[in-house]
Design a protein around this nucleic acid. Sequence first.
DNA 1: GGCCACGCTAAGCGGTTGCTCACCTTCGGC
DNA 2: GCCGAAGGTGAGCAACCGCTTAGCGTGGCC
Lengths: 208, 208
Amino acid sequence: MSTAEETAGGEVAPWGEVTPDAARRLLMAAVEAFAERGYHATTTRDIAGRAGMSPAALYIHYKTKEELLHRISRIGHEKAVDILRTAARREGTPAERLADAVSSFVRWHAGGRTTARVVQYELDSLGPEARAEILALRRQCDAEVRGIIEDGIAAGEFDVLDVKGTTLAVLSLCIDVARWFNIEGPWTPDEVGALYADLVLRMVGAGK
Amino acid sequence: MSTAEETAGGEVAPWGEVTPDAARRLLMAAVEAFAERGYHATTTRDIAGRAGMSPAALYIHYKTKEELLHRISRIGHEKAVDILRTAARREGTPAERLADAVSSFVRWHAGGRTTARVVQYELDSLGPEARAEILALRRQCDAEVRGIIEDGIAAGEFDVLDVKGTTLAVLSLCIDVARWFNIEGPWTPDEVGALYADLVLRMVGAGK
DNA sequence: GGCCACGCTAAGCGGTTGCTCACCTTCGGC
DNA sequence: GCCGAAGGTGAGCAACCGCTTAGCGTGGCC
């Protein structure tokens, strides 16, 4: 049995760690609903209905609607950190590692855009303490990318004017993929990943 | 008397075309509320309250809450098209025109992030026919940027692998500024505009 | 077989939502 | 001084919200 589940859109999402089964079904239904309509416009009745359950069933597994968003957001951000960390710490030149990080990160945002949209754009719907926890994970994402860029500068491979600003721009570019990417559009997630890796290497002045 | 109004955040927004006065105050209050909480989480009582009016006053000037968002979105997108068109059609080399377009567009998203956030991120809250109208304006934005890039390629100044993809990435980078920019952060809108203009020129392979 | 913990449902609670309606002012034109 | 239009208000409607509670079926354990 796989630890990956498929949403109705055919995406692969790592919700295997969520148990029991009914809790996972509710969480996957919430991801779809939040991505389609936004957190505030989604009703608990809608989530429960998509999971084939009554509204009350939701409250057996989750204390509030916000806890659902919190769980989704934390798991998603942990995955994001994992993707970037894996690319940052692999073998290879800074350019290879940066290209790997960008293409993997973009593929995740494009292929799992339903999840990514919730993870990246519903942060403000969280309460203060939950948001603070997620922001710490975002800073880890930033640190991993900045580390690669600093390595490239130290190795004399990159030419960057503003490390902080360039790091932010690289992450911003990747994250915004979740907003515009459409699975029925002209590109596959792999193609966007490759295109963006090339654009980012140009941004840091690599491979001249 | 100026045609520009200031929101509570000190931003300059061109709502001068909205009359009468009460309708403009309601619209500016709606922009603030939508940017802070999102369209669906904002109540008509909140909008009216910010404008110093009773809830019922809103319906004298606007038929529904959605009409408010529609008006905001259309005026904002018209301004966006105007900014890009002005930069695209000025005198100068393609590199100068692209740098101008990016820095102006970024300055608008950073300086007027309250408005820009509503304009760029609440599109899905619109009904089908209103959304279709706005999407036509977005295609005009895309066409202006693509035009500059194509001019640069034709002049032999730019080196671009995928014109469509690069155009999308440039716009995506600029638009996402509205998501992360914070007026209390380390950068001014001008600084981000200059940084991003440099990054975009690198993306299109100019100035090597 | 008796029992009870578990997962779930039907019904519904108090509160809030977008929006309406009856009515009240203010004010320029005559 | 009268009037009607324009712009506003207080009260409130029907619908819907997140969430709770009482009770039901079922499967494992002794």
